[in-house]
Nucleic acid binder design. Structure first.
Length: 150
DNA sequence: GCCAACGTTGGC
DNA sequence: GCCAACGTTGGC
């Protein structure tokens, strides 16, 4: 069992959208490192903070659970999608996604609040220049954030 | 809108 | 395989 933090732009998929839809494929990842986390490291039952990025109030907005192993991301085959990849074919998909299911909506925990916690100083998302949309979270970091959310 | 940081591309 | 140019990310 591992912990993760997964960024989503709420204008595309917000925690409220996930709550309404129960399960969503984590489509749109176009970064090899993030893809490899989904393909090689994520396990069914892993928990992730659902993080709202590129929005008015960036921060942790909820919790979700990995509920399907990595499979082809359909958006890579759709010419109408911004995530279309002409070099990908159903035979040889380049991009994968796991499915996640809604666990809970939390109060919004802004990134500024995360930065104020010494226990979280090592979090990958808080490091300078971090851009990765999926990052591992240590058990200690997970616990510290859960405490903040109480 | 700014801009630092990073990943990708492609010529050589 | 190098590396400059370019595009993207994402907080501020």
């Amino acid at each position: 069992m591992a912990y993760w933090l997964m960024k989503s732009e709420p204008s595309e998929v917000s925690i409220d959208d996930l709550q309404a839809r129960k399960v969503v494929p984590w489509f749109g990842v176009r970064n090899y490192q993030a893809r490899n986390f989904m393909r090689d490291a994520m396990q069914l039952g892993d928990l992730a903070f659902f993080y709202h990025s590129s929005c008015a109030e960036p921060g942790i907005a909820g919790i979700c659970e990995v509920c399907a192993a990595a499979h082809a991301d359909d958006t890579q085959f759709d010419p109408a999608s911004p995530y279309f990849d002409a070099k990908a074919t159903p035979d040889r998909p380049r991009w994968l996604c796991v499915d996640v299911k809604f666990v809970e909506k939390t109060r919004l925990l802004p990134i500024a609040a995360l930065r104020q916690q010494p226990a979280l100083a090592g979090m990958q998302i808080l490091q300078r220049g971090n851009r990765l949309s999926i990052t591992p979270v240590s058990a200690d970091e997970w616990q510290a954030i859960m405490e903040l959310l109480k």
